[in-house]
Amino acid sequence: MNGFASNIDAKALGKVAVLMGGRSAEREVSLMSGQGVLEALLSRGVDAHAFDPAERHLDELLKEGFARCFIALHGRYGEDGTVQGALELLGIPYTGPGVMASSIAVDKIMTKRIWRFEGLPTPDWRLVSNAEQTRTAFEALGAPMIVKPAREGSSIGMAKVMSAEECEAAYALASKYDPEVLCEQFIAGDETTCAVLGEGVSARALPVIRIVAPEGNYDYQNKYFTDTTQYHCPCGLPEGEEAEIQRLVERAFRTLGCRGWSRADIMIRASDRKPFLLEINTSPGMTSHSLVPMSARAAGISYEALCLGLVAGASLDGVRKSQ
Rank of each mutant, 00 (worst) to 15 (best):
M1Q: 05
I8T: 10
D9Y: 02
K11C: 01
L13D: 11
G14H: 08
K15P: 06
A17P: 13
A17K: 10
V18R: 01
G21Y: 10
S24P: 06
R27V: 01
L31F: 05
S33K: 02
G36M: 09
V37C: 11
L38T: 01
L41R: 04
L41K: 01
L42C: 04
R44Y: 07
R44A: 07
H49R: 06
A50Y: 11
D52E: 02
D52T: 08
P53Q: 01
A54W: 03
L58A: 02
D59Q: 12
G65K: 08
G65H: 09
A72V: 05
R76G: 12
Y77L: 14
V83N: 06
L87Q: 05
G91I: 06
I92N: 03
Y94R: 09
T95I: 12
V99L: 11
I104G: 00
K108R: 08
T111M: 09
T111V: 00
K112F: 08
I114P: 06
F117H: 15
E118M: 15
G119F: 05
G119I: 03
P121C: 07
P123F: 14
P123E: 15
W125Y: 14
L127A: 15
S129T: 06
S129N: 08
Q133H: 10
R135I: 04
G142M: 10
G142F: 06
A150Q: 04
A150H: 00
R151W: 04
R151A: 15
E152S: 07
S154I: 08
M158A: 15
M158L: 15
V161D: 12
E166D: 15
E168R: 10
Y171C: 13
Y171V: 15
A174P: 02
L182K: 02
T193R: 11
C194N: 09
A195N: 00
L197Y: 03
G198T: 15
G200N: 14
G200S: 12
R204I: 07
V208L: 07
R210D: 02
R210H: 05
I211C: 11
G216V: 08
N217A: 12
N217S: 14
Q221M: 12
F225N: 14
T228L: 12
T228C: 02
T229L: 13
Q230Y: 00
C233E: 05
C233K: 05
C235K: 07
P238I: 03
P238Y: 01
G240H: 06
E242L: 04
E250N: 04
R251S: 14
R254M: 08
W261I: 14
W261C: 08
R263N: 12
D265F: 09
R269H: 09
S271D: 15
K274H: 06
P275C: 02
L277G: 11
E279H: 04
E279R: 09
I280F: 05
T282P: 05
T282Q: 05
P284V: 05
P284K: 10
M286H: 09
T287V: 10
V292Y: 03
S295F: 00
R297W: 03
A298K: 10
A299Q: 01
E304P: 03
A305H: 09
C307I: 14
V311W: 04
V311M: 04
A312H: 00
G313H: 07
G313Y: 00
V319I: 12
K321R: 14
Q323W: 10
